[in-house]
């Protein structure tokens, strides 16, 4: 008796499983004719709403649907490595180089750049205003370690492109990041979140942080933080788009991915990028990379040549 009941229950469950399996496939939300393009992007391009401005133009022109997952550069690269997206939009030349060298990515094109800024409270308790970035970091660390009241640095702490840049600045200032900075005291706090959220957190704590200028300007209205350091070669911030290698993941949407990368370096979009945010913030959030390849030190082909 017992056994028969159990068997009956098991049979019902198997039947349900089959039904669910069928309904699962029928509700699969893939529009028939439209191509889907999956992009993993760094948060700054998303939070500034640049992509929100560009995607409708692309969708119209290419009859595609753009699905954007906004994550830090580290996470975006992870999605790319796993073949879960078709295009990466990130800003970390060093890790991009490794990604390309490992064969995960192809056809990198640089479409925009801007600069990182060190922002902090107007009172500037560490006195870094107008310093070079490396000197400013040294001063923040020194004052922070000494327990000067109000000296706190909030780090992205999420392996994003901005976090990479921060580490590079610490290195440039002569510190070993994991030994001298990370966990060296209450003055250094890791947020583990996106740029916007990190700025909100730094604002709440009236702390220093490193931000890309685009996200900072887009959030400025809500923040009491001011730009303290904005000059120094190391602060250059270069954005690229690249395809995930179709040789690695053959069923990837490589045609529309190629269209997207070419779209980003097209004259129209470059103009769009150069003017984006001017009406709202009085200055552009990003500079178009098109004519400045020499200035930002990338090969001309990465800026000018569309993918064949």
């Amino acid at each position: 008796m017992q056994r028969r009941t159990l068997f009956a229950v098991a049979a019902v469950m198997v039947a349900l499983l089959l039904i669910c399996g069928c309904t699962g496939t029928t509700s699969d939300p893939t529009p028939a004719e439209k191509q889907q393009l999956r992009i993993a992007t760094t948060t700054s391009l998303y939070d500034t709403k640049l992509l929100e401005r560009l995607t409708p133009i692309f969708e119209e022109e290419y009859n595609a649907e753009v699905l954007i997952v906004s994550a830090g550069t580290g996470k975006a690269i992870e999605y790319g490595q796993r073949g879960d997206v078709d295009v990466l939009m990130v800003h970390d030349r060093v890790r991009e180089d490794a990604f390309l060298a490992d064969g995960y990515g192809v056809n990198r094109r640089v479409f925009a750049y801007n600069y990182f800024v060190i922002v902090g409270p107007e009172s500037d308790p560490a006195g870094i205003k107008g310093m070079q970035p490396e000197a400013a970091f040294t001063a923040i660390r020194e004052k922070g370690m000494a327990g000067t009241p109000g000296v706190v640095f909030v780090s992205r702490g999420d392996n994003s492109g901005t976090h990479s840049k921060e580490k590079a600045i610490w290195k440039g200032a002569g510190f070993n990041y994991s030994a001298d900075v990370q966990g060296s005291g209450d003055w250094y706090q890791e947020a583990g979140t996106g740029m916007g959220a990190t700025l909100e957190m730094a604002n709440e704590k009236q702390a220093y942080t490193l931000s890309d200028i685009g996200t900072y300007l887009a959030y400025k209205g809500d923040l009491d933080l001011v730009t303290l350091v904005d000059e120094g070669d190391i602060l250059l911030n270069i954005y690229c788009a690249m395809q995930i290698n179709p040789a690695k993941y053959p069923d990837i949407n490589s045609t529309v991915a190629k269209d997207w990368v070419n779209f980003m370096i097209s004259d129209d979009v470059q103009k769009e990028i150069a003017s984006f945010g001017v009406d709202q913030y009085g200055r552009p959030l990003f500079y178009a990379a098109q004519d400045d390849w020499e200035k930002i030190g990338v090969p001309q082909a990465e800026v000018k040549d569309p993918i064949a």
Binding site: P29, P31, K34, Q36, P56, E65, V66, L67, I68, V69
Partner: peptide
């Protein structure tokens, strides 16, 4: 899910 806001409801 990835918190995607696409142009179509279903995606």
């Amino acid at each position: 899910g990835g918190n995607i806001m696409a142009s179509s409801f279903a995606s």
